[in-house]
């Protein structure tokens, strides 16, 4: 975005030969890098619009607890690919688990994730999100950087950094992970789930029971 603004302002003062050179350069960029820039801004817009919506749901005091939960769940399911995240968090046990266990785990994970993510984001109710930029890891993999601004904060501490990993490989942007102060949640979940399964003989059913219990605790 900044690069485009800089180019737009440069354009006013360029002589004819400069315009030609710029045209060639832009032509080269569109072939080499512009799609990544464009996709980066798509990812940024996607995060800004949807996360702001999520915070608005959490900030809406006229909603009942159940309404807030339902609206947050609907939004989260549209924003993320929880099935994809669930499969990732199973690690190497994804390959050995039966299809029935994997399906049951995906359902339990969704239930758990909605409860836990809602609880995490509820801590930031009343704050606003500002996209500060994005970095392309590949043509369809972006880290969108944001900060959460708390209007009432007088601590003098810098705003909280929240990064969103956005994948566009399925044709539409999808959040596959987010990090707070550099800690990615799906990575942390994979580490603890695989460790738990390692200690319990790869018993996915036991993990499902634990996830359901935790989700229940968060909802109460």
């Amino acid at each position: 975005m900044a690069e485009r603004l800089a180019m737009a302002s440069m354009n006013k003062n360029l002589p004819r030969r400069g315009v030609l050179a710029l045209g060639l350069a832009l032509g080269a960029m569109s072939w080499m890098g512009l799609p990544a820039f464009a996709a980066g801004s798509v990812a940024e817009n996607f995060v800004e619009k949807n996360v702001q919506k999520g915070l608005a749901v959490l900030n809406n005091k006229s909603l009942s607890t159940e309404q807030r939960r339902t609206q947050f769940e609907t939004l989260l399911l549209g924003l993320t690919d929880l099935k994809r995240i669930a499969d990732f968090t199973l690690g190497q046990y994804r390959r050995t688990a039966s299809p029935a266990d994997v399906a049951a785990f995906e359902a339990a994970f969704q239930n758990y994730a909605v409860a836990v993510y809602q609880s995490y984001f509820a801590n930031y109710a009343g704050q606003t999100l500002k996209v500060t930029g994005s970095q392309a890891r590949s043509a369809d993999d972006f880290i969108v950087q944001t900060v959460l601004i708390n209007p009432g904060d007088r601590s003098g501490q810098p705003p909280l950094q929240v990064d969103f990993r956005v994948r566009t490989d399925t044709g539409k942007p999808t959040v596959t992970d987010f990090s707070v102060s550099g800690i990615f949640l799906a990575l942390e979940e994979r580490d603890q789930f695989t460790s738990f399964l390692g200690q319990n003989g790869g018993n996915v059913r036991l993990l499902i029971t634990h996830l359901n219990d935790l989700a229940k605790q968060f909802k109460n």
């Binding site: 836990v116 609880s119 800690i183 942390e188 580490d191 603890q192 460790s195 738990f196 200690q199 935790l214």
Partner: peptide, 16 residues
Amino acid sequence: RSSVDYYSSLRSLYRQ
């Protein structure tokens, strides 16, 4: 509150 295994959760958080 949210951990299935607090030990491995802490390990992951620390490293990250």
